[in-house]
Write a protein that binds this DNA or RNA. Sequence first.
DNA 1: GCCGCGATGTATCGGACCGATACATCGCAC
DNA 2: GTGCGATGTATCGGTCCGATACATCGCGGC
Lengths: 212, 212
Amino acid sequence: MLELAILGLLQEAPMHGYELRKELAAKLGAIRAAISYGSLYPTLRRLQAAGWITEAAETPATAEEVPALTSRRGRVVYTITAEGKERFAQLIAQAGPETYDDTGFGVHFAFFARTDQATRLRILEGRRRKIEERREGLRDVLGRAAERLDAYTLELQRHGLEACEREVRWLEELIANERSGRAPTVPEAGTAGGRRENDSPPPPGESRKERP
Amino acid sequence: MLELAILGLLQEAPMHGYELRKELAAKLGAIRAAISYGSLYPTLRRLQAAGWITEAAETPATAEEVPALTSRRGRVVYTITAEGKERFAQLIAQAGPETYDDTGFGVHFAFFARTDQATRLRILEGRRRKIEERREGLRDVLGRAAERLDAYTLELQRHGLEACEREVRWLEELIANERSGRAPTVPEAGTAGGRRENDSPPPPGESRKERP
DNA sequence: GCCGCGATGTATCGGACCGATACATCGCAC
DNA sequence: GTGCGATGTATCGGTCCGATACATCGCGGC
């Protein structure tokens, strides 16, 4: 999962570790806390060893003397390689079971702008199926095993069930949207904004406004 | 977290591993998938080594002959010890930061029937605080960094924000209930035979709502 | 009779990820 | 001129997961 997220982010711009973590937190803030350095740095090394990314130390040019005195440690900027982009595309397209768990789905969804429509649809439907299964499980427990459980546990299940139902509805909307052509959700599309974000393929909606 | 969950469950009845996993899945189905055996068995051994639980092999009495021939492997039933109950109480009462993340809160909540009211309140408020922080983070991103992100990522954030708002409302209700209502106190375990488990009276939520 | 097959049951192993910790630099306010 | 928070790289121990292996049991089909 981390691998996919890193490759995805580095496709937008080269970054160093700290930046990567912040961007990741911004992009995935809805589904998980900030990534740990204890995962990030080892993963970066692994990706580099595999050739998916390259590392470029940011030394202040011509480090003449003082070769080993306190050895200034510059920032290390990582750049994705062509092989890395290939790898990313492959990871995005092939969906394992982990693609549909909370984190996996979130990461995939966050990179939907770089995913073709067929794959988007497949992932959304897979996720819906999974959530529906969870929902049925909760309904079973609430229906059949209700007497065995205390009031708090039941309340927890009930809240979980509600969350499932909401997510299914959300996914239905997204799926319908996806099938009918474009755009997740449609707020008013005013604001003639100079589009940035250049290269990525047809982005679904336009800028959303609504400031409360 | 697993430790807490196991100690909590074993307080309701002695169980073997497989059963433990199923009960855990039923009780925590709303917040996480079934626990892995790769976590369960090592944890059981750890708990046993610490003296919180004891293991009683279920051999079919008088195993007369065939002492080492295919060596029938009976089920291993675990029982919580007095020290284990103490440990459980301690784990429930002392709240670290991990108490408020998704899984940690879920596990604590699932054992609220064995938690005193003051602690319940503390945990609910801690959780609310944490979710409010996440909510503010999402609002920030949606407000300030909206132009930097594509429509799908924004939609993810928006959905996450909504989930946060809903959970805060849910927590508010529970907190109000906890404050004004009487304490649904511990269904003090066992003693004489036929357990009914039904006795923790005032349920947190109000009347169940619509049935589709 | 016996064969497969799904549920029950115990167990290990490698790997992913986290939380705590350490250490160094930089800019800025006091 | 000094503390202090943000920036920045890195490791270590520990928790938990997913895949895998293996054994027993009851049941239905052939």
